[in-house]
Nucleic acid binder design. Structure first.
Lengths: 204, 204
DNA sequence: ATAATAGTTGACCATTTAGTCGACTATGCT
DNA sequence: AGCATAGTCGACTAAATGGTCAACTATTAT
């Protein structure tokens, strides 16, 4: 019973957008409220702080993202195709964001993680957790690729860490240079790191 | 004539430390002044804003850093040894910072670059510039290694970009996970990316 | 219908923050 | 010595920011 509202999800949407297009430190509660068209009183009705809102927003966002990733990294898909699809997917998103905001934005978790990592709190934990999930998707694909004899990767966990470092680094470069095209070579870069034999001319 | 002072360098030292151990957004002018033991009036005597201080601080810091890098990347040193030395050097610094601050801090330029990149200003430009310099050190070493037949890298610029993405990604992972040991494999990772033949058991 | 409840609002307060200014002080130069 | 000048200081303002609250409103279950 009582009143119903979508103010909570509006706040979560707003904070995600602001954090991605700007930064944690430069995003104020007033800004979030304005973008969400919610008064500050309502903000504090739902959340205790900016940090807590960010945690819940990233958690909820990750839930839906995870569903997409589960599809993309399905064991029904050839291991290397999973990675290929993921690269294409990310590239497309970055292009869309560039289109929408005029800026390459990189990875929200990685950028935010770097920014808030020395603050020590729930937010940092949540971000570490999400990044670790991402690594596990990669790791599983690499393990399967190894098992299928497509690549030689006796330590899939290490390879996954290495590739994630490269990939997140590349995304961050794209953000810093405001240039999505940096990501053009991500697939071939990853495949080179995996030791995939042919560069595959993708069906001339 | 007139009074002399090292307040300006104290301010630059202070801001570098604060930006590295915290973030741009969470660092206030009051904080900088307190750490530098300088009153705000004096701050504005030397600098117009936090951003301008940061630009000058990074510029000055880069000058001295460049001298070190010139030695490390001297053409007198074997190309692959340059990279090896650089990895060791970075690892050592990260360890010292962890010792000193209790935190792995990663690369100040890369972290700050990711944070301020959407603000569009002098600071972002300066950081892009410094990161580009770093890439050129790598590129030159890779080109020399290729010429010496140590590796196969017909496009040293592309390889350098790729390796820098990986290396900065790794440093940022170290910061996010607060774990310097992430960098343990940086050398072997880079050498693998360069296609160096033997992993070299470094003198059993 | 109405009572209980979930959500909204705007006015308000305290603190932090950026930024200014004029008076002051120490130092090098002649 | 004493003047010009580089640098210091503290007190100040205005604005931004985080956070609170009591009164209000819409919905829903009975």
């Amino acid at each position: 019973m009582g009143r119903v509202s979508d103010a909570k999800v509006r706040l979560m949407d707003a904070v995600l957008e602001l954090l991605w297009t700007n930064s944690y430190g430069s995003t104020t509660i007033d800004q979030i409220c304005e973008k969400a068209r919610v008064k500050k009183g309502s903000f504090y009705y739902f959340f205790q702080s900016k940090a807590q809102l960010a945690v819940e927003a990233f958690e909820t966002n990750w839930q839906s993202k995870q569903a997409e990733l589960d599809r993309m990294f399905s064991p029904m898909v050839s291991p290397l195709d999973r990675i290929r699809k993921y690269c294409e997917f990310t590239y497309k998103i970055q292009q869309e964001m560039k289109q929408k905001y005029g800026r390459a934005l990189g990875c929200p978790q990685f950028c935010l993680g770097a920014e808030v990592s020395t603050m020590e709190g729930q937010l940092q934990k949540k971000i570490q957790q999400i990044l670790d999930c991402k690594r596990r998707y990669l790791e599983s694909a690499i393990r399967d690729a190894h098992a299928a004899g497509l690549i030689h990767a006796p330590d899939p966990a290490a390879k996954a860490r290495m590739i994630l470092a490269y990939y997140e680094g590349l995304l961050t470069q794209a953000r810093i240079q405001n240039d999505v095209e940096v990501l053009r070579d991500s697939e071939s870069g990853i495949f080179a790191m995996l030791g995939v034999k042919e560069p595959e001319t993708t069906a001339a």
